[in-house]
């Protein structure tokens, strides 16, 4: 359903060591809105030293990348800033940091004043004498207040597009034609299954740890458990019963149904699932 509407926004994908990564929150949201989940691989800024919740960048599956490419919704955004403007950019960066320092200094002073004000007014509610002392204290604060440079809060930007000195225009966000069509039959089969399941509204993630190709979620993985483990097999592949039993046993152990997915010639996919039937 999401695919039917015209792409409102082209997604900027950068390549890092040939892996497709997304950096801007806007792009992450856009991709999620298309039902693509990806995998977060960076440290979470809020609490970096844990593995439970990770942060940007978002790593795309090859199938997700290809789907975006075919929807003309992907653009490579690897270009860096031009060298000519470098001096200008450095200057700009320094000026902005200076301005940020001045502004933060003012804010910090205001912050201290209002804190003082709160403390004073809560203890002494009446009397003109306290008013007098308050004014005196505020003036003293004005005089003595220092804001050292080390207290300046700076941003360690996550995405480069967010960096003002890298004045990247949005020209690079033009959609590109699909560059390479993989001719690896295995990749092609995986993509066909991925596209079919996504088209049916399922959310997919990689299922390496479950011994399959994809984990299939009925809705957004944030709110739902995966129901199926999709295993992509070509139709003409003869399968040993032991292998079938092994994946089926694994699936039942993690309370998921194993889907054997075989792409057909017409673009459709044949799904087979296995269930233990207890005969008593």
């Amino acid at each position: 359903m999401e695919q039917d509407r015209p792409p409102p926004q082209v997604v900027g994908v950068t390549l890092c060591d040939s892996a497709p990564l997304l950096w801007r929150v806007q792009d992450l949201k856009e991709v999620r809105a298309r039902g693509l989940v990806g995998g977060l691989v960076g440290s979470l800024p809020r609490t970096p030293r844990q593995n439970g919740r990770l942060g940007r960048p978002l790593l795309l599956l090859p199938e997700e990348e290809r789907l975006l490419t075919e929807l003309h919704a992907k653009a490579n955004a690897n270009q860096g800033a031009g060298g000519v403007q470098l001096r200008l950019q450095v200057q700009q960066h320094q000026e902005e940091q200076k301005r940020s320092f001045e502004e933060q200094k003012i804010i910090a002073l205001q912050d201290r004043k209002s804190a003082l004000l709160r403390a004073m007014t809560s203890s002494h509610t009446d009397s003109a004498a306290s008013d007098e002392s308050l004014r005196g204290r505020l003036e003293a604060l004005d005089r003595s207040f220092t804001f050292p440079r080390s207290a300046l809060a700076v941003q360690l930007s996550t995405s480069r597009a967010g960096l003002h000195h890298c004045s990247e225009d949005r020209a690079f966000l033009r959609a590109q034609q699909p560059i390479t069509v993989q001719d690896d039959p295995r990749a092609a089969a995986r993509y066909q299954v991925f596209g079919d399941l996504r088209g049916r509204g399922f959310y997919l993630t990689s299922a390496g740890k479950f011994g399959g190709d994809f984990l299939v979620y009925p809705g957004d993985p944030l709110r739902f458990h995966a129901h199926f483990i999709a295993v992509v097999l070509s139709l003409d592949l003869s399968l040993s019963p032991l292998d079938v039993l092994a994946v089926a046993r694994l699936g039942s152990n993690v309370k998921k149904t194993v889907l054997l997915c075989s792409p057909g010639r017409g673009g459709g996919v044949l799904y087979t699932s296995l269930q233990w039937s207890g005969m008593v």
Binding site: L44, R46, G55, A151, A153, Q155, L156
Partner: peptide, 13 residues
């Protein structure tokens, strides 16, 4: 998204 969009902010010191 609020968690993901959070930026790193540190004191220069």
């Amino acid at each position: 998204w609020s968690l993901i969009s959070e930026e790193r902010v540190e004191k220069l010191g």
